[in-house]
Computed example of a mutant assay.
Amino acid sequence: MKLDPLIVSRNKLYTILSIGFGMGYGWLVYQLHAAMSHSHGPTLCLIKNVTGIPCPSCGITRAVMAIIHGDMNGAFYSNPLGFLVAVGLAVGPVWLLMDLLLKKDSLWISYQRFEIWLRNPVRAIPLGMLVLINWCWNIYKGL
């Protein structure tokens, strides 16, 4: 399979992921600290702060926090996408680090293949519909 050369470079992807994982873990540590001090952290969702309407990803932090505490029902209710984020935060940094240490490209190649796979409307449209349904559910729940 020939991979598209226009897809983001390996170094750029690994830099973006490293920053994203660092920020994700930093945010979780902050939220865990806020929870232990019985305070509520700020809402960073620009869409919700401006419009008052939750975005499709609203509730993911609460979902990941619920997963950390073993509350799978609470995680699902907060936002089912939180399970994907939790898996990504658990697997992604290890995979990235292993690629860097072993001088491999497996994460980058998998990313390229996934991006090509997702370009097919037969796959992309149903996934987009799931995100839209999740967004409607977030609005209905009044997150």
Rank of each mutant, 00 (worst) to 15 (best):
D4V: 01
L6Q: 13
V8D: 06
S9W: 07
N11F: 10
N11D: 09
L13N: 03
T15H: 00
I16K: 07
I16W: 14
L17A: 10
L17K: 00
S18M: 04
I19H: 06
I19L: 12
Y25W: 15
L28G: 08
V29N: 04
V29L: 14
H33P: 09
H33R: 13
A34P: 03
M36Y: 13
M36A: 13
M36L: 14
H38A: 12
H38M: 09
G41Q: 02
G41H: 10
P42G: 14
L44H: 14
C45D: 11
K48H: 15
N49R: 15
T51G: 08
P54D: 09
C58D: 06
G59L: 10
A63H: 09
M65H: 12
M65N: 00
A66I: 02
I67G: 09
G70E: 06
G70C: 03
D71H: 15
D71K: 10
M72Q: 03
N73S: 12
F76K: 02
Y77S: 09
N79Y: 09
N79G: 06
P80I: 07
L81E: 01
G82M: 04
F83R: 08
L84V: 10
L84P: 00
A86I: 04
V87N: 00
G88N: 05
A90D: 05
V91P: 05
G92Q: 06
V94E: 04
V94I: 15
W95V: 03
W95N: 01
D99K: 02
L102F: 14
K104N: 06
K104D: 04
D105K: 14
W108P: 01
R113K: 15
F114Q: 01
E115F: 12
I116Q: 14
W117I: 00
L118H: 05
I125T: 10
I125W: 11
P126W: 06
L127D: 01
L127N: 02
L132M: 15
I133T: 10
I133C: 10
N134V: 07
N134K: 01
W135P: 00
W135T: 05
C136Y: 13
W137S: 07
W137C: 05
I139F: 08
